[in-house]
Structures are given as structure tokens and as C-alpha cells.
């Protein structure tokens, strides 16, 4: 059994209104730091997954992302990092 460390970022799908992102956009504009930052607010997860091999662990990770960490109606996820421990 091998163990892998993964970093996951969950964001709202394209086209879903992101009121938190819009709020941060407004602040960036007001402070003069950036005019059109198009901020997206999401969530970050770091976790370990085990598997017989990399493919096995990646399949399990995808299931975790689809079933628990995100809701496909609303959100999409990206695996930012996937390394053997």
C-alpha cells in the first residue's frame, strides 16, 4: 500500500455567480489595487490517500472530490499536487 499527499482546490463552476468573489473585487477596486481582478473564492483541502498504486489512489481521490469535497451541481475541483509520501 502506498500513500500519496494531495492538494485540492474547489471553486464555483464557470457561470455560477460568486458573491464572495464580487465582494473581494469591490474591495480591490476601491483600494485602487486592481481594476478588474475577477476574483474567484474557493476552498483548499490537503489530504493523504492510500492505494496499491498511483492510478488506484487517484481514482479514490477523484471519488472523494466528487462525493465529499465538492458538489458537481455547483462546484468543480482541481488536483493541484499529487505526490508519493
Amino acid at each position: 500500500m502506498k500513500k500519496y499527499k494531495a492538494d485540492i482546490i474547489v471553486t464555483l463552476k464557470k457561470g455560477v455567480r460568486d458573491p464572495q468573489g464580487t465582494a473581494v473585487d469591490t474591495v480591490l477596486k476601491r483600494t485602487g489595487l486592481e481594476e478588474n481582478a475577477e476574483v474567484k473564492v474557493g476552498k483548499f483541502f490537503a489530504l493523504s490517500v492510500s492505494g496499491n498504486n498511483e492510478l488506484d489512489a487517484r481514482n479514490k481521490l477523484n471519488k472523494i472530490c466528487e462525493d465529499v469535497l465538492s458538489n458537481p451541481v455547483l462546484e468543480s475541483y482541481e488536483v493541484e499536487r499529487f505526490l508519493e509520501e
Binding site: 464555483l12 455560477v16 455567480r17 458573491p19 464572495q20 465582494a23 458538489n71 451541481v73 455547483l74
Partner: peptide, 16 residues
């Protein structure tokens, strides 16, 4: 909604 017993989903209010 999360359990898919009702359609759709509830998300952060428009005014945050």
C-alpha cells in the same frame, strides 16, 4: 439538496 433528495442546491446569499 446535498443528499439529492430535492433538485438544485443552496449557495451563499447574493449580498454575502
Amino acid at each position: 439538496c446535498e443528499a439529492k433528495l430535492l433538485p438544485g442546491i443552496l449557495s451563499v446569499n447574493d449580498n454575502t
